[in-house]
Amino acid sequence: MKKSVFLGALTVAGLAAGAAAAGTLDDVKARGKLNCGVTTGLVGFAAPDANGNWEGFDVGVCRAVAAAVLGDPQAVEFVPTTGKTRFTALASGEVDMLARNTTWTFSRDVDLKFDFVGVNYYDGQGFMVPKALGVSSAKELDGATVCIQTGTTTELNLADFFRKNNISYEPVPIETNAEGQQQYLAGACDTYTTDASGLAATRASFENPSDHVVLPEIISKEPLGPLVRHGDNEWGDVVRWTLNALIAAEELGITSANIAELSEGTNNPEVNRILGTEGNLGEMLGVSADWAKNAIMAGGNYGELFEKTIGENTSIGLARGLNAQWTDGGLLYSPPFR
């Protein structure tokens, strides 16, 4: 018994580590499908619709990568992961990439051996409380019961915040956003804390969103972005530049409406290089020449994707804020395509 458990663990570890070897790009092409790790369901970011089709902001990134590599935005196998299972899923090779509200931190990058390829949403941690509680600042939460998702940066920031402000709290650890929502609405916790975007998305799915407020304090920096395994730089490049293509497309005015026309050829060389009518960026990346065109057509450029899934005209209603282009005072800044 003792031995078999031990062996089993080693086998799992051995297989897991074995599958993590390089060559993801070839694997994906051979498989004809991208395995993309997303959340278990966060409306606006990644959630299946009534027909079981995944949609959302993070899902858009997955589809863009699939379109860039395979030419088909539908060739994605979405793998729902919780805050806790996501890293094991990526490290073991169960998914090729994660696009799932994951904060870029030092230890995840360096110690957990992942590569964050960029940031698709600049966020920060906030608190949501029922209006009836009469709380207007997070500093008034002394003694409160707080719902948090385990295995997240949220849980560490929370500990730091309460420690810094010398107040106490009672953590209620939960696995998924859905569970957190249930406990919060039943009053099993006074406040729910996670990334502010996640709070907005969660609140939007409530029956009476206006009964709840998100407190003004943002207690951390949460740059959320897609990530891949450390050490497979070719694959990392593909995901990184797909994301950059979406961002650059917005900056350069390439939209899903005009992309067909622009790919006939324009007099802007950078647009031509992105769309593959000039130069050989696709070849360098190991994908087809029209990779970026396919990626942008999958769900529009960054701005279009944002407006469609989480923007101000959706029920989630997030403003661009930090996530505007640098030319509009935001932080989005794609390195040049040349």
């Binding site: 062996l7 570890a13 051995g14 897991a16 580590a17 993590a20 051996k113 450390h230």
Partner: peptide, 18 residues
Amino acid sequence: LIGWLISNTAQNLADLGK
């Protein structure tokens, strides 16, 4: 078999840098 599993695991973890 045990020896192979151990060395394989160690090798793979080392490749991952862990």
